[in-house]
Design a protein around this nucleic acid. Structure first.
Lengths: 197, 197
DNA sequence: TAGAGTGAACTGTACGTTCAGTTCAGTTAG
DNA sequence: CTAACTGAACTGAACGTACAGTTCACTCTA
């Protein structure tokens, strides 16, 4: 019971807001997570909410951010082709589900909403990039990948296409598509590779 | 003088709206192109505007769409590596400029704005994809690229990373970066290629 | 009792709608 | 050839709505 009261009120208010926002995002996407709705459901007043966050989008980014890291663990199958392909497949699957829609809305909102961009970066991109960087480092140590390519470029090449598709909806995010993208990224677009299966 | 009067009023109104919107987009991005501002500058009433377009974003997409096709001609240097690399470089340069910001805002707005998405797709993506598809077909005929990869996948792999960076701003869009991305996409991330310069 | 939170009202912006009245282009009648 | 007619398209100004973000007098709780 020390646990409960050791949380200052402000912490309880924050948690309550984040929990309510998470629910609203699940139910109706970013559009449903209005500040009034968050306030009503969490029982925290708008005035207090705006003491903790600079804008609406930032709340949503923080509320939604944690689940993504949790829901996509880092694969470790022992070789870079399998690991990276599996990672692309997992991320693609995440995007293809209902959470993908919310993710897209948040990314889109962060473009307009200057104050929210750092939140979005912190809760989504940084963790994701760190993940891939670790896979990339492993692969580099094993000598399996081109050392002239940076982890950042590799990340963009593998996941940029997924995000492109997610946002524009011009092509589906099926498992086959994810594999096609990963394979193309790993082996290249040119016909120079005779060692393909 | 027949030319003038041969345009029905509706065409003149549309042109006026598109011209005004284009100006506003240049001056202050999507945020400046409010429907009231467009109406005021074009001299076309809001009621009329909403007879021609379903929502604000659609106007902006159409107004902004044409310049992009114009400003990025299709390269033809005779081989796929140079052509695609050059194309990536050109698109990257376009994104890095002031128009890139507007493009990002439009793409972001289309995520939320259901009615605008088809406009955005028509005026940006379709033309772009057709462009790359043509380059890809050429390369296929010459046997320079992997025939197992579709033009769509190739497009996503080459331009998805640029869009990813543009939207999140996590990495710059310099010419070097564009080349690094194109090279990585063409040759692949793996170390399997001995035939590199 | 002092700092944190409440709640309710308020401001401001911008989308999209509505409608009575006006302009214009093409048509018909004189 | 001209003048009246017609209907579609446009105007202008107001309106309703939604939502972000702010303010302030208050209440509670640590």
């Amino acid at each position: 019971m020390l646990e409960q009261s050791s949380h200052p009120r402000s912490v309880r208010a924050k948690d309550s807001v984040l929990a309510a926002t998470k629910e609203l995002l699940d139910e109706g996407g970013l559009g449903a997570a209005t500040v009034d709705a968050i306030s009503a459901r969490s029982g925290v007043s708008k005035a207090t909410i705006y003491k903790h966050w600079p804008c609406r989008t930032a709340i949503a980014a923080e509320a939604f951010g944690r689940r993504m890291a949790d829901s996509i663990p880092l694969p470790n199958e022992g070789n870079v082709v399998d690991d990276l392909t599996e990672q692309v497949r997992r991320v693609s699957k995440f995007y293809a589900g209902p959470n993908g829609r919310v993710f897209a809305q948040l990314l889109a909102a962060s473009v307009t909403d200057e104050a929210a961009a750092p939140y979005f970066r912190e809760f989504f991109l940084d963790a994701r990039r760190a993940n891939v960087a670790e896979l990339w480092e492993r692969a580099l140590r094993r000598g399996e990948v081109n050392p002239a390519i940076s982890a950042g470029t590799a990340t963009d090449l593998l996941f940029g296409p997924l995000i492109f598709r997610l946002l524009t909806g011009h092509a589906p995010l099926t498992e086959q598509q994810a594999e096609a993208i990963a394979t193309a990224a790993l082996h290249g677009l040119l016909k120079a590779n005779p060692a393909d299966d």
